[in-house]
Nucleic acid binder design. Structure first.
Lengths: 227, 227
DNA sequence: ACCTGAACACCGTTCAAGT
DNA sequence: ACCTGAACACCGTTCAAGT
């Protein structure tokens, strides 16, 4: 308080040097402030007070930016397991956590489908999944493929959730109308169905069911334990 | 040959009136000619010799255009089943056909994840899936949810296939490098894994395994037959 | 050597104004 | 009443030119 230091013209601290880490930081800020649909090369560059061209020195393309960001988001996940919690419960919990992370950011969830996230936190997640599957007695080949299947399911489910939430009721009404228009002669089974089953249901319960289906299926399709 | 009729100034036949059907036709032409990444409102409009604004009279937005197109693509699928072929084989076949359809068009596959396709062919597909699941002894609730799960898996798998194919080896090399960088102290299970299992494997075999996992899981999580 | 301004080639969607 | 030109507000990526 005793002295006034000269202030730079901008409140923002002196332009930090560019780096992969600085870009991911900026991307995270943009994501939290403006939402996933605004997570573009141009906006991240603007956040760093530069032009979009500068990012291409550190990131191959938009997909690369997403891969980096997904790994960064993964950092907030609890990935510990001491073996006390039963493996199936632990698996449900980590997948639900991951789904929650992605469901708030639909564009990122879509990215997670086509990108192998690149970074240390992703490895931590894969490690936990492999440990849980090993505890379940799943053989190596099935475990490796199951990791892919589980993560793919979570990403797809998150993208679907988020998309539906964004569209609110509109699209669901379209679907209900389509289903209701089923001609009993052309679609006898469908017409005999309780269409509420197809479009409704508590997503939490549905998703827990889906994960149990995946787990049971993997167990059924794994070589006998110890093989 | 005996007489020459006057030709309109453009080779293209006189501008047909706009309609939902005309738009889907044009979209299909654009898709086949320019590929999925060029399937935009503007290009479809150009194909119809009009401005993009005109499409909005018939289609809510780009997502709506995709929903229409997916249903149209579904028309080429063989959806017959006389009960002779075992239900599990028939299920594998129709899902593989659908996956093949989408894998050639990654952008469409991504669309299929967030859109409920809208139209008669989609209903035919759902009808077949429900018939097959009923033949498998799956109860109504499980069947309804299984349809969602199976179609979601196929769309996600197709999107993944296509994306990987487009990126060629580049991203796969990145992933291998990331996996190889696993520190045995931090990721002991991962480090002990044959990393080839995680990144490689014949996609056909992997996907057949995945579908079997889903089927077996659904059977395990379905109420006893007839319930 | 490293970085980036400016340009290129696009997008989806809206709305005021036309026929 | 129906349709659409033109505009608005953006995109990703490249590359020649700057420091």
């Amino acid at each position: 308080m005793s002295s006034r230091e000269p202030v730079s013209r901008r409140t923002r601290p002196a332009k930090a040097p560019l780096s992969r880490a600085a870009i991911v930081d900026a991307a995270l800020r943009v994501l939290e402030r403006d939402g996933g649909s605004k997570l573009t090369m141009r906006r991240v560059a603007a956040e760093l007070d530069t032009g979009p061209a500068s990012l291409y020195v550190y990131v191959r393309n938009t997909t690369g930016l997403h891969a980096l960001l997904i790994d960064r988001l993964l950092a907030s996940l609890d990935l510990a397991w001491d073996g006390a919690e039963p493996w199936r419960e632990r698996l449900h919990r980590v997948l639900a956590d991951y789904r929650g992370l992605l469901a708030e950011r639909p564009e990122i969830a879509r990215g997670a489908l086509s990108v192998w996230p690149d970074g240390p936190n992703y490895l931590d997640l894969v490690e936990l999944l492999l440990r849980l599957l090993a505890a379940a007695g799943v053989d190596q080949r099935a475990a490796a493929w199951a990791v892919d299947l589980l993560l793919q399911h979570v990403s797809a489910a998150a993208a679907e959730w988020a998309e539906r939430a964004a569209d609110a009721g509109q699209d669901l009404d379209d679907l209900s109308a389509t289903l209701a228009s089923a001609d009993p002669r052309r679609h006898p089974v469908l017409a005999s169905f309780d269409t509420a089953l197809l479009t409704a249901g508590d997503p939490e319960i549905r998703d827990r069911w889906a994960v149990d289906v995946l787990i049971d299926g993997v167990l059924a399709r794994s070589a006998p334990a110890g093989a």
